[in-house]
Write a protein that binds this DNA or RNA. Structure first.
Lengths: 354, 354
DNA sequence: GTGAAAGCGCTAACAT
DNA sequence: ATGTTAGCGCTTTCAC
């Protein structure tokens, strides 16, 4: 056994309560005793036992964070933000990686629920019902997901998508592919919503997927998009976009002269890795920190301001190669005829031309 | 308060011990009662209180993992492996990101030590003394670091470096840069060791750094290496290598025709991101899983097999551009004269030519 | 300002 | 096969 509070008490010739107070409410002690107790504690190498403490206080000093795939740089940055802010607030953090699997996610949430003061669920793939059931009475903050009554941090994907589409339109693209992300992804729905809102007269969008949002899916999807003779590809995230670029390079398709590619999430690194990638950047780290703040506020029963929206920003770097700016002529006349292939929607659902 | 064991006991008309046994040692109960208890527990939504349990058992069911920078894909993959294996073994995992800062690392280790059954320290930047002090009596597994008597998972960086140098030599390079990683990094020392052992007659190596092992450092270092007229650059890790490549592209230096770049660690993704990158790959995920296994064995007091070495593998993809294979003539004659610049060592410390 | 005592929810002997 | 009992290490009334 480690050094207990009793040992310190005995050695300092005080009661255990006094030792306890020296740590939890020093102001109740005379400076002299406090000093003495603290010294003895240090000499003995005493540190309070968390389990025992939380047994009586009901608080653990821990929070949990669950993400679908830590390997995805978006979540990595997010978790890093969570951990940093939690550390600042003196919380320890449990990490869970659900592997994009709702079953695993539920498992993890359950396991955590019992030993944390709150949980942050990032891009949860659970249904609302599962979600409520799994966390029980535990405090929750949702990220990239909205469920009524649950505090959340969300990104402005709709606005991000508008920036992306405007950009592609400005480059003259009229035939755009959208590569869908995971089936149960809220943020994918948001991106699609933004897409439908932003499509303009004379522009056609063909959707592919859903895909597992990884590099390989992008490789695969690039061929599909090319087969449909699309000149712009918006991918659910940067990983897929990178896959697309890789495949395009392999097939000797010039970017962005022949095809433009836009990704989401921003790795913060992705566009460095490959400057041909235009991306809708989002402050994952900040999202993580804000999520922690929200959670900590919850402990204090502050119920106001339960959802925060973070802005997104299109980042265009331009390739290292031949990028020379606008190459194409913006089509403002008639929409294209329907194309064989996956789901397609043109400007028909976005009203008449402005 | 949540549902307690007493409530279940009362409702099922048994003693609390019986309820406890239903969960921890079902074989001691008659099938009938066990069944009944479990049902009642489920109906009431009972789940055991971890804190209370570990207070009496002394075991927590948690492990901790600390890395210098979660954003570094090497550590991301590692942590993912840890989490997956831990989940399989029914452990929850605490995550700590030390931000390459020994102070923070110590803080995190201390905070965890009290509420885990063991800690995995990956690429620890602590000194051996700090390390021992911080973890106290807690079980530890080291990764990418050797301290006598402490179980560890290590990578064969020496072998990896040999592969890298052999490769560069085969491509005809005679003037090689090595970009050092963090100052207190054990694995950087290992890489240097491998470097010294592998340098051959007629080859000169110039070292730069230490650097913070990130993309930006690579950008910066590329210029330094170019100024020294070096034709091959081996970077401490892939992130830096990517930075180098980015800078080379910016300066219109052809890779690998003019300069070859080798990175370490492998992101598993890095060479996808940029096929010009040749990398020494390492199974991070496996390392994570093995570390967990080692730790779990420790709980069972199995002291054999305390250190495992994982192999590394050079991966050459070839650029998407003009790579055509060996371009240069291997120099086997005289070493170059010393060059102005940072630390330099030629074949002089590797014995006579074979 | 400090001590005594009563648990927090659970498990593990020790009975029976 | 089940119940009784005694804590695990700590915090927190309640006295003094």
């Amino acid at each position: 056994m480690a050094v207990t509070i009793r040992a310190v008490a005995r050695s300092a010739e005080v009661s255990t309560s006094t030792v306890s107070r020296a740590f939890t409410s020093p102001e109740l002690l005379s400076p002299a005793t406090r000093q003495r107790v603290l010294e003895v504690a240090k000499r003995l190498g005493y540190a309070p036992n968390h389990a025992a403490r939380s047994l009586v206080t009901g608080r653990t000093g821990n929070i949990g964070v669950i993400v679908p795939d830590l390997t995805n740089p978006f979540f990595t940055g997010f978790v890093k933000g969570v951990q940093a802010q939690a550390h600042k607030a003196e919380f320890s953090v449990f990490l869970g990686d659900s592997e994009e699997n709702p079953r695993v996610e539920i498992d993890l949430a359950r396991a955590m629920a019992r030993q944390v003061d709150g949980v942050i669920l990032c891009s949860s793939r659970m249904t609302s019902a599962e979600l409520k059931e799994a966390v029980g009475k535990t405090n929750v903050v949702l990220v990239n997901r909205r469920v009524s009554g649950v505090p959340a941090v969300v990104m402005d994907w709709v606005g991000g998508m508008r920036q992306a589409i405007d950009h592609l339109a400005a480059l003259g693209h009229r035939r755009v592919a959208y590569l869908n992300g995971p089936r149960n992804s809220w943020s994918n729905q948001e991106r699609r919503r933004g897409l439908r809102r932003s499509v303009r007269y004379g522009m056609a969008v063909v959707e592919f997927g859903p895909f597992v949002p990884q590099f390989e899916a992008g490789v695969q999807a690039a061929d599909l998009a090319l087969a449909e003779r699309l000149t712009a590809i918006a991918a659910y995230n940067d990983l897929m976009a990178l896959g697309v670029l890789s495949r395009l390079a392999h097939r000797r398709v010039a970017v962005p002269d022949e095809v433009s590619v836009v990704g989401f999430d921003d790795i913060a690194m992705a566009s460095m890795y490959n400057p041909s990638l235009t991306t809708v950047a989002v402050p994952q780290g900040q999202a993580g920190r804000e999520a922690v703040d929200l959670l900590v506020n919850l402990f204090g029963d502050q119920t106001e301001d339960v959802t925060r929206e973070l802005g997104t920003q299109l980042i265009v770097r331009g390739s290292t190669g031949t990028l020379t700016g606008q190459r194409r002529h913006i089509a403002t006349t008639t929409p294209d005829p329907p194309t064989a292939g996956p789901t397609q929607h043109s400007d028909s659902d976005s009203g008449p031309p402005g």
